[in-house]
Design a protein around this nucleic acid. Structure first.
Lengths: 336, 336
DNA sequence: GTGAAAGCGCTAACAT
DNA sequence: ATGTTAGCGCTTTCAC
């Protein structure tokens, strides 16, 4: 059917492995021989068959990134980081959406293992630990992206959500807020804990009705805000623990604040893509999505190359920003 | 090394092809035999090697999507559509960013051809026609996404940008605007033509200084708006021909309008993801990104299956929306 | 309905 | 520095 390495070898009057050596630069080849081979490749328009190479050599030069939903600007930016880093090394990347559904995740991973990907970057669901454990036993290179995993020593790249959440909460307290609501996703346990502990440390009692958890979508963000606003007395500040929720939540808050003399203060986990589109006055923790993507991929490559690395966790810092104008996010990180 | 089909066959006491038949459901197998095989697969934790299967069967159950930049919400949503459709049929998808750079695109495609992907979904650069022609000669299934291609009969899925641009321009004219600026990307020739022709049809003379073309980024969107606003006399309306530019452009316009008694009217190509984050009063053409992704993928599958299809172009309609409140996009499509 | 044999296109191990 | 040989794990073809 298509032209194969054998055809190239015959055309160039050399043996088949010599062609392989030229293509993969895997051992020295005479300049003359090399030229003949290159000419044959050019003339026959030969394109190597990676399937065959992979079957023999046991590596596919292929990675995969599994995220909850690529439609979220955070994950999009992570993907861009992964892609840039992988492409620079001649690797290609599969993308998969899990929708945080363990069944979908499992189905995806099965397909990826069949395809013998060299490594996996994954934002696991809450129930993925056994699956990750099995993958690792099978020798699959894995890096967990942006989510902590308990009960398993595995490479993880994430930002320090807890520390940022403390700063955000302290900022609201310092601004005089005394009824601070929290909305977030199931997965944001660290941020919720930071919020609770910071309030407790400041001697604040917490109204449990002001803490709302829900699935990660814009619509839910809006609903959760409306729910806590309906509480009597209403909150004087809202901590939004997730960037996906933030998109909807900020809308609802914008409308609510437009009708109040004293606006409700806002702290939010957000990302730079969303920031460039909409940024009301607030204090925000901006997550380094692109860097998370790049560092995850680098760590994966380091593992694949058996390079020595220290520790299992890479923790990047969020950028804390105080946004003052309606559409003019300050470009300077805030102090503290 | 790993457990192979041969191991499964021995364990189940059947021949190797029988295992293959069970796995791929490729011919009838006795219920008993089937059960034995399935048990062996389970017991040995066997995962088929898709490389080997692909090498033999000449298909990889793999697609690729090449976009200018996945960080744009439009392409993100297209990807989601592609992914959903592909996953439903057991296909996996490679993602690539070209940054509209022909060299990068070529490098990417080479890697994909080596990997023997079954089909390619691509938003080509302006210079990709020869490349596409060659790919098609090699028998690669190709669908062009969201961009018109001239001089080549190739499957294309896009929205009717020209028609929408006419409606947007007519709307601005009907609202009494007489100095309508246009900002867009190099690639948006159809939209620019619609704008020019509609103005001409209405007997309007066009100030060439009010037409600005630039590369697609938020920053450029902001710059282009500032450039046309600096013109004396200033425009009374701005037509934003691209959703990526729109993000930055709408910021600049928001600031400008805040300081004017008579606001500058806005018409824009936008997308639903961006809309849910920020939507000032304007008339917008909302592009059906998710559907473009799904239809492209379906068309590709139809071609791969040699199904008869009529025509090379699938043209979807944009949704025309009149946004009135600051953050409350009307959910009803506007008439006309 | 199932098995035996061949071979997809390449790389790895060895020989020279 | 290059050639010979073997075989990666599977599907296909052809028997029976």
């Amino acid at each position: 059917m298509a032209v194969t390495m054998k055809d190239v070898a015959e055309h160039a009057g050399v043996s088949l492995p010599t062609v392989s050596r030229v293509i993969n630069d895997t051992s020295y080849v005479n300049a003359e021989t090399r030229a003949k081979v290159l000419a044959a490749i050019e003339e026959l328009q030969y394109v190597p068959n990676q399937m065959a190479a992979s079957l023999r050599s046991n590596n596919t030069k292929t990675l995969a990134l599994l995220v909850p939903d690529i439609a979220s600007s955070f994950w999009t930016t992570v993907l861009r980081g992964v892609e840039d880093e992988a492409m620079a090394r001649g690797y290609h990347v599969f993308l998969g959406n899990t929708d945080d559904d363990p069944a979908k995740e499992a189905r995806y991973i099965d397909g990826l293992v069949r395809r013998r990907i060299d490594g996996l970057l994954i934002a696991p669901t809450a129930k993925s630990v056994p699956l990750l454990r099995r993958l690792r036993q099978q020798g699959m290179g894995c890096v967990v992206v942006h989510r902590p995993v308990s009960g398993l020593e595995i490479d993880t790249v994430r930002s320090d959500a807890y520390a940022s959440a403390v700063i955000l909460t302290q900022h609201l307290l310092a601004a005089g807020c005394r009824r601070i609501a929290f909305i977030g996703g199931e997965i944001e346990q660290g941020r919720l804990r930071a919020y609770r502990e910071t309030l407790a440390a400041a001697g604040q009692v917490l109204d449990p009705a002001l803490v709302r958890i829900g699935p990660l979508s814009e619509q839910v963000g809006e609903q959760l805000v409306n729910t806590v606003l309906a509480r009597n007395p209403p909150p004087d500040a809202i901590f939004i623990g997730n960037n996906r929720l933030a998109t909807g939540a900020l809308h609802a808050l914008g409308r609510a604040n437009a009708q109040r003399s004293e606006p409700i203060a806002i702290a939010a986990f957000y990302d730079s893509a969303a920031l460039s589109v909409y940024a009301p006055p607030m204090i925000a923790a901006i997550q380094p999505a692109y860097e998370i993507g790049r560092y995850s991929t680098r760590r994966l490559f380091d593992r694949l190359a058996n390079k020595p690395v220290d520790g299992h966790e890479i923790i990047l810092s969020n950028r804390i920003m105080i946004v003052s104008g309606a559409h003019t996010p300050s470009l300077e990180p805030a102090a503290g």
